[in-house]
Amino acid sequence: MNKTILLLTFLLLTINLSAQEKYFTKEGYITFYSHSLVEDIKAENHQVLSIIDESDGQIAIQLLMRSFIFKKALMQEHFNENYIESHKYPKATFKGIIENFSDIAIGESDINIKGTLNIHGKQKEINTRARINKTPEELDISGNFIVKVADFDIKIPAVVINNIAKNIKISFDLKHKPYKK
């Protein structure tokens, strides 16, 4: 299977193909942050894939769980092996829509994004405000939202229950460029 077919399949699965132009990045940035009395945990992922369909504002985001980099090896191991189970659920996805996308003018503005987040095989509806910076060459979308660990059926052992926050802050910065065929 060559890349074109693969990309088309991906676009078909995620976005209506009738669209004319797409914005795209392979180097989106997503972090999550857990604050607790015992310790703060932060992990960064620089390899986030995101595609926006210009015709209707649909957005599809994919990332690899193992691409999250932590400060401490033990955190990363626990995250992948025990909590997120990266061997079973290697990816997280978000599929949604940027509301009133066609009204967005050049420059900075606030937008609303609505969609479904899929982590650890569990789905959760997300509705969040975000900041968009539109230029002819770039579509930069950034913001953050909070998710509950419990919503994704992630089991935290009692011994570290105080080390990990119940609510995790997810921040994103996705700098899309027009997709060239």
């Binding site: 390899q47 994919q62 690899l64 769980m65 290697p90």
Partner: peptide
Amino acid sequence: GSCTGFLLDVVLVR
């Protein structure tokens, strides 16, 4: 590097 999987490309980190 450490392989993390495949999106549109294979990703290696660190």
